[in-house]
Design a protein around this nucleic acid. Structure first.
Lengths: 352, 352
DNA sequence: AATTAAGTTGAGAGCGCTCTCAAATTACAG
DNA sequence: CTGTAATTTGAGAGCGCTCTCAACTTAATT
């Protein structure tokens, strides 16, 4: 089935190409009967304008790109990215945008494709996830002046437009909740792979500080957001006998639960676990996780809106948005029980 | 930064637009010194051809679309789709294609966007997942004559090109393994939402038949691939005292484990569980799941290759590919133990 | 050396659309 | 009824590229 052109629709309805174009783009100043006649032909023929031709002249493709840096494999055992993608897709649907997805396999891919993406003039703007630090890509992006919205706070926020959740408050809330439950030996499993983890740690420290609990290096471990890393991190934490642990994402919390179980520790009786994300693993776990819910879908949706603002130029460039998060209490947390732990804590409390 | 054009590169290197085009597209019959001179200018300026203009004339965008039907939300608690997407993305990277993702929120979205996608001439071909039956979309697609590869066997395979794993053999293998372990009361949790589930059930029946075990309706339950549905299905199965259950995906297996645990049944001591997929939930579960591994990434990658064949016309159209799968034995299965169960089975065996 | 074949290049058309500009038509004021 | 302004339309240029065709140059053949 050969595709119709503007010209042909014009011929069929006895007007010029230009007039048909006007009808399609809803320009004023068209005689109603003409508009109607053309519209009828369009409907009858099922004509759709060729977006490629349109893009060529208008310089607007209505395609936006989503970049997810390498380590694709690992990335998808965590529902964070799928959820984010789905939010972004919704945002695109709502704004009549096409989403094109760039999942990189390697740093080399990133370097190559990357130039290719911006250079080709195909897409109008870019959403970039800060899954992992990548200064090189970041710099290229910044220099290009191309419309970019980062999801997740980058290290260098000066000239960047990004959206993130309020990780500091999230970390604070998690720790505060455990403190209010009476815990004093509160461990944390954080991460260095991006800034979010560090901000969550920062919130945790802030809460400890406010409650007069000294920060203890032995109670801090790091992972990479994967289940296995949470498992190892928890194993290294167990000898220091925390009565609670704040794990900075659900997947690592799953790993922590496994480590605790294998060590013969019950959750929440012996150790309370607070997690972060509230994605599917939180309710798949046993016990189900008390966790900080972050609005991942909404983040994606809003990122699209922000990017659209950038593209249209009706929004100022360095723009920072932080979304709120909320504590969801489930079965993995409880008040301090164990006498030995309590004794330790009292000793600690006295210590300050 | 203004984008350079072919014309300008030509001017800079003292040749015509056409010659530059030839250099870029690696045509033969160019004087080496000219080729080199032009290439130098291209490298120096960082010129990239405008893909939109190129698409307009060549009618090839090198963009392919991936359609994931509605119920996006639910879809992403199951890592199947993310994994598939990542496979497809790899296939695209390897073939220099851009992937554009269409996640639909509603049937209406599907109907609208759908015409929009094919009609606009933006994409060269389409990969469509058969996550859920949708005859209407299927028909539109077939009529259009547009290059389409389905992932997952559709109901009507006559004129369709699709790739899937060998679900029948997969189901057969799962059931056979349980039979070999001595199980006779083997339940199954399948699904009606697409053909895969039914094929797995078919394989299961085949195995039972070959081992002379009568098929028992009471031991069949259905879900929708979600954890909760697996949970309910298992609950409905427990009263019929299966000694093993074959659950047709990992996520429902997670639900089954929960139901079994709550009923006080141990896995694998009281009930063996074989699952399907071998995606992340399989190893996140406790106990880790014996499961049929399907090569989801590979499926995605191959789908891209097939689609490319279709687009280039160097592959015949109705083409059916089935990928093999393999049994992965983990901790959720064991030989029959319980006396009461064994007695039941003996009674049953005599019955045949 | 003459002829033919191959290699090498540029001019120009055209992909399907948008948008400017000017011409033609209609409306309204004096 | 004329002059002016607003409305309505089409012609044509042009977005940046590919591709055909013809012209010119060089190599191969007799």
């Amino acid at each position: 089935m050969k595709r119709l052109t503007l010209e042909e629709i014009g011929k069929l309805s006895g007007v010029s190409r230009a007039t048909v174009s006007r009808v399609i783009n809803n320009y004023p100043h068209i005689r109603p009967e003409i508009r109607e006649r053309v519209q009828t032909i369009i409907d009858q023929t099922g004509y759709k304008p060729n977006v490629v031709a349109r893009t060529l002249v208008s310089n607007r493709s209505n395609i936006i790109g989503l970049i997810i840096p390498s380590v694709v494999q690992q990335v998808f055992s965590d529902p964070y990215f799928p959820t984010l993608i789905s939010g972004i897709a919704r945002g695109c649907n709502a704004n009549n945008l096409v989403l094109s997805l760039y999942l990189f396999d390697s740093l080399e891919d990133e370097r190559n494709l990357f130039q290719a993406i911006i250079g080709t003039g195909l897409i109008d703007g870019l959403i970039v996830t800060t899954a992992r630090r990548n200064q090189e890509m970041f710099d290229t992006l910044q220099e290009s002046g191309f419309p970019v919205v980062f999801v997740g706070e980058p290290d260098d926020i000066a000239k960047t437009t990004f959206i993130d959740i309020d990780n500091i408050t999230g970390g604070y809330t998690a720790a505060q909740y455990l403190l209010e439950l009476g815990h004093r030996r509160i461990a944390i499993i954080s991460t260095h792979i991006n800034r979010s983890g560090e901000s969550r740690l920062e919130g945790y420290r802030k809460a400890l500080h406010e409650y007069g609990v000294p920060f203890d290096d032995h109670l801090v471990a790091y992972g990479d957001f994967s289940l296995d890393s949470g498992y190892s991190a928890m194993q290294s934490l167990i000898p220091h006998q925390p009565s609670a642990v704040f794990v900075t994402n659900d997947l690592m919390a799953l790993g922590s639960l496994r480590a605790l179980r294998e060590a013969g520790l019950r959750v929440p009786e012996d150790v309370s676990v607070v997690s972060f994300d509230d994605l599917s693993p939180a309710t798949q776990a046993d016990p189900q996780l008390t966790t900080i819910r972050q609005p991942v879908q909404q983040t994606g949706k809003d990122a699209v809106t922000m990017l659209l603002g950038l593209i249209n130029g009706d929004v100022q460039h360095p723009q920072h948005v932080f979304l709120p998060n909320e504590l969801i209490v489930r079965a993995s947390t409880g008040a301090v029980r164990s006498k030995s732990f309590r004794k330790q804590q009292e000793a600690l409390d006295k210590g300050c």
